[in-house]
Design a protein around this nucleic acid. Structure first.
Length: 596
RNA sequence: GCGCCUGUAGCUCAGUCGGAUAGAGCGUUGGUCUACGAAACCAAAGGUCACAGGUUCGAAUCCUGUCAGGCGCGCCA
């Protein structure tokens, strides 16, 4: 796969959706029942000569009375086999029970409903799963890819002309969490912030800083009509004054703000954006978001690389001149119209620089490029994908993830944000209000293509009831339990391998234990799904489910003061639960407290 | 007008690429700490999955149309 014609459904790039398994599973410590069932079914289909089904579904039924695993495959096969689903299900049941591998892992195999085959795990399968998790240690759930990809993930990427607001915070949290998940799932991920430090918006920003600088020194230069009115610009101007005093004032008095190429305006633009960028880096860092590289747009222009890229496109015939401008031929690749690279005033467009940037990415040899953009840029997607396809000849090389917006509410009232008017709630303010953990958890809790309502007043007031604490509490609770184990029991922890026997009387026979183990055993697959579907919010949902199952288990199952074998195995279950919870929180960039 | 995203409980949202009786949190009501952490647990109430057709053994999920909301449709970035 990978080299053939595009066959993706547009939601998952086919290059990334190859079959994979968690490390501890693929090492053979646990033979996943699911895979064994799939094997038996496909052998059966081949033997009978039936038409293959697209995927042999083996799922965890929502209803526990339907067993631990279930497959509806007989319903799908009925037509091709020309036999009643329940008859097929009975035959499959026999085949499953006759299989050496499955019979060991399975307690019961039942035919139910219109033709489902339901399986329940055997005690050895349950204890084997826990033993394998403990053996994997901190790496439990880490994925191994048959073909790991080196992915470049670009996100946040804004004009450095103002503080990051909560909309940016969402993309920062999403992108950072995604990078952690993809890396943990077995890919190699590099992250990058593209600094849009060039162009008209930045010139306007430079003028705005200059105006505030002049004003602070008693020269009445008004901030331009389309300039940046926010208070933070005054702070920047003040910072500049402490650095250079009034040494730029005279030049502003003479030259004013009009000439963008003047040394004064240029100075304020550059110094202003450096200060903003510094703050951005600090804010992101304290938010748990770091980048492998910060890539500045300006050198692409200064070093002539934008022009080189355009020349290359002209030479290949993908670009052409018309109406005093230069255009890129993007329509053959699904765009509505061709796009301008060089304006009739001879200045290159933002798009032209972005192409040069993406050419740079391609030349660095990544297998796959991912950009995360806000919904307000989605109209830009077809031209960018067209450009990368022209450069790479691979329509799937670039994947653009569109994140929907954040609606900021205050007591249910919508608050509009505008960087230019300086009306916004910043990332830093959000973190001050609710803390990093709650902010990150909340921002990735929902699917990225759902607009997110964030009520600041509510978030502030309910901070003690935030769902993040539910998960953190489960982790802290386990830590507390293990910390307070009596000496004899505490000694068990030094021999994790000996905690859970392969089989014993009373071992994991309660529903609470079984449900918890099943959920834990699902984790490696959850990681793969969250990574391949670019869906960090699944990790949140999973962590909540797991925490809930642990709380119920703990409420109903004594860990200490029961049969030694049962007691030891439950300590093992606590330990495995704690590790998986800690890993989930780590993937989300949320702390896993030992106590709270 | 065209394109993208969305429409599921009072509110905010999940829903394992088409599976069995649609779930969670918050909110509401009522229970549970003289054995390991009550930031927890248990129970109750609450649904025309926007609407109408279609595809099939089976649809919240896929297709078509309608309605509603958000975003976009520059030689701005």
């Amino acid at each position: 796969m990978g080299a053939g014609p595009a066959c993706g459904d547009g939601r998952t790039p086919h290059a990334l959706s190859e079959m994979t398994t968690g490390a501890w599973a693929s090492r053979g410590e646990v033979r996943l029942l699911e895979q064994a069932v799939q094997r038996v079914v496909s052998e059966w289909i081949a033997a009978e000569g039936w038409q293959d089904v697209s995927e042999i579904v083996v799922e965890r039924p929502a209803d526990h009375s339907h067993g631990d695993y279930a497959t509806p495959v007989c319903l799908q096969l009925a037509k091709s086999a020309r036999r009643a689903p329940r008859v097929l299900a009975e035959e499959l049941r026999g085949r499953l029970l006759a299989d050496a591998e499955i019979s060991e892992l399975v307690e019961t195999v039942d035919v139910a409903g219109p033709g489902f085959v339901n399986l329940t795990m055997s005690a050895p399968a349950l204890s084997g799963a826990v033993r394998a998790m403990l053996a994997a240690g901190e790496d439990v759930g880490r994925g191994v890819r048959e073909r790991p990809l080196h992915v470049l993930l670009e996100y946040v990427s804004v004009n450095p002309n103002g503080p990051l607001h909560v909309g940016h915070a969402r993309y920062a949290a999403y992108g950072n969490t995604l990078s952690r998940i993809m890396a943990f799932s077995g890919h190699k991920v590099s992250t990058e912030f593209y600094i849009n430090d060039y162009g008209r918006q930045m010139e306007m920003f430079g003028r705005s800083v200059a105006a505030r600088y002049a004003q602070a020194l008693g020269l009445d230069l008004p901030v331009p009509e389309d300039g940046y009115q926010g208070e933070y610009v005054k702070s920047i101007a003040a910072a500049v004054i402490t650095e250079i005093g009034d040494s730029m004032l005279e030049e502003l008095r003479i030259g004013g703000l009009e000439d963008a190429d003047s040394t004064a305006i240029g100075f304020f633009r550059v110094r202003g954006y450096e200060l903003v960028l510094e703050q951005m880096g600090a804010d992101l860092e304290s938010f748990g978001v770091g980048f492998d590289r910060w890539f500045s747009e300006t050198p692409l222009h200064a070093e002539g690389r934008v022009q080189e890229t355009i020349d290359k496109l002209l030479a290949s015939g993908d670009a052409y001149a018309r109406d005093d401008a230069v255009w890129l031929r993007t329509t053959p690749f699904g765009d509505d119209k061709d796009r301008v690279l060089i304006r009739s005033n001879e200045r290159p467009t933002y798009f032209a620089a972005d192409i040069a940037y993406h050419l740079d990415k391609l030349e660095r040899g990544f297998d796959h490029l991912i950009n995360i953009w806000g919904a307000d840029h989605h109209g830009y997607v077809p031209r960018m994908k067209a450009a990368v396809e022209i450069l790479s000849h691979d329509p799937e090389m670039l994947e653009i993830i569109i994140g929907q917006m954040v609606n900021l509410l205050e007591e249910g009232e919508l608050r509009q944000m505008s960087t230019r008017r300086g009306e916004m709630v910043t990332l830093a303010e959000l973190v001050d209000a609710v803390g990093v953990d709650a902010a990150r958890f909340f921002l990735v809790m929902r699917s990225h293509d759902q607009t997110l309502d964030l009520d600041l007043a509510l978030a502030r007031r309910q901070s003690a009831e935030n769902p993040v604490y539910y998960v953190q509490y489960a982790h802290a609770r386990i830590a507390g339990i293990l910390r307070n184990l009596p000496a004899e029991q505490a000694a068990w922890l030094s021999d994790e391998g000996g905690l859970v026997p392969a089989a014993a009387e009373g071992l994991f026979e309660l529903t609470y234990e079984r449900e918890l183990i099943k959920s834990l055993a699902w984790f490696p697959q959850l990681v793969i799904e969250a990574a391949d579907r670019r869906a960090p919010h699944r990790v949140v949902g999973y962590a909540q489910e797991l925490a809930g199952l642990f709380h119920v288990f703990y409420k109903n199952c004594r860990v200490i003061g029961v049969e030694p074998v049962v007691s030891r195995s439950r300590v093992g279950l606590c330990l495995a639960s704690q590790r998986v919870l800690a890993r989930c929180l780590d993937l989300l960039g949320v702390s896993a407290p030992e106590s709270m």
